[in-house]
């Protein structure tokens, strides 16, 4: 092997530093979430977790309706994840495999919507939700997030490369309708990609803050993220409380990541630009 082909030691050093930087804040969150205020405010700081985890976690559950918050988050993120996997696959299928007038122009519109900043329009968005009578409900969070331009773009790419026109032709000759072709042939073939897209939708919805913060009013409707904010308001009482809430609100995603993180990484890289 030529010298230039070897991996240099500083490559590992830099990647090691980056890995540490990625993981340490989560570790630190756990450390502070396990120590009492006296320890958390001690200098030099305690670097190892303390024994206070269950005490603080218990406080989280009594200060805010945290179980409800986690359930709300699961409902919202779960619905959006499933909605994404289905609706974006369906639209991606139409753009990748069906011929219809205006197809290319409409797809261009889909791509262009990705560049439209809509978060700054929260005031009229709130007015619309309000006129639908959806303020302080979970559907106000679910419905707007059911499909995305990014998801359609992503599924179209997968459908275009995975499914050959011959298969579709054969199915048509056998008398299958468009819906059957999608549901029985196309979708099963791109299910792995749709699964990763659903996961990304789930993670984004789970972590969303601004919109739930505006729309949700009563503590029973809070998602986990808004519960963190509510815990922070009582920050002065206990430094570890908001940290414990943050840790508990992140824990489900960490568990999820342990099981499907590899597929998420592969999915993100598959969906990215090539060349």
């Amino acid at each position: 092997m030529k010298k230039a082909d070897r991996v240099r030691w500083w490559t590992y050093l830099l990647l090691g530093v980056a890995t540490l930087a990625c993981v340490f804040p989560l570790y630190w969150m756990f450390v502070v979430a396990t120590t009492d205020t006296a320890t958390a405010t001690k200098l030099p700081p305690e670097i190892l977790p303390g024994g206070n985890f269950f005490h603080l976690a218990g406080l989280v559950f009594t200060t805010v309706p945290f179980v409800r918050s986690i359930i709300n988050s699961l409902v919202v993120a779960g619905s959006i994840g499933i909605g994404h996997a289905l609706l974006c696959s369906l639209a991606g299928f139409a753009f990748a495999k069906l011929r219809f007038p205006g197809r290319n122009a409409l797809f261009l519109v889909v791509v262009l919507t990705m560049t439209v900043p809509t978060q700054l329009a929260v005031i009229p968005q709130y007015m619309i939700i309000s006129s639908l009578g959806w303020v302080d409900t979970l559907q106000a969070l679910i419905v707007p997030g059911l499909a995305s331009a990014f998801g359609i773009f992503w599924m179209r790419q997968h459908l275009a490369t995975t499914i050959s026109d011959e298969i579709l032709q054969a199915a048509r000759i056998d008398g299958a309708g468009t819906w059957q072709i999608f549901w029985r042939i196309a979708f099963p073939l791109v299910r792995p990609a749709a699964f990763v897209l659903g996961l990304l939708g789930f993670v984004t919805a789970w972590n969303d803050f601004l919109w739930p913060f505006i729309v949700l009013k009563s503590p029973e409707m809070y998602t986990a993220q808004i519960a963190i904010k509510a815990l922070q308001n009582s920050y002065s009482i206990d430094l570890g409380l908001a940290m414990s809430g943050s840790f508990l609100a992140t824990l489900p995603l960490i568990v999820l990541f342990v099981f499907v993180g590899r597929r998420m990484v592969a999915g993100i890289m598959d969906g990215a630009f090539k060349g």
């Binding site: 804040p25 969150m29 940290m243 840790f247 990484v265």
Partner: peptide, 21 residues
């Protein structure tokens, strides 16, 4: 694979939790 997966850990952490820590 280990390095790539570590890179995605911050992405799954919410903005709210990130800010608190």
């Amino acid at each position: 694979v280990f390095f790539r997966m570590s890179m995605l850990v911050p992405y799954i952490t919410s903005v709210a939790a990130t800010t608190v820590v």
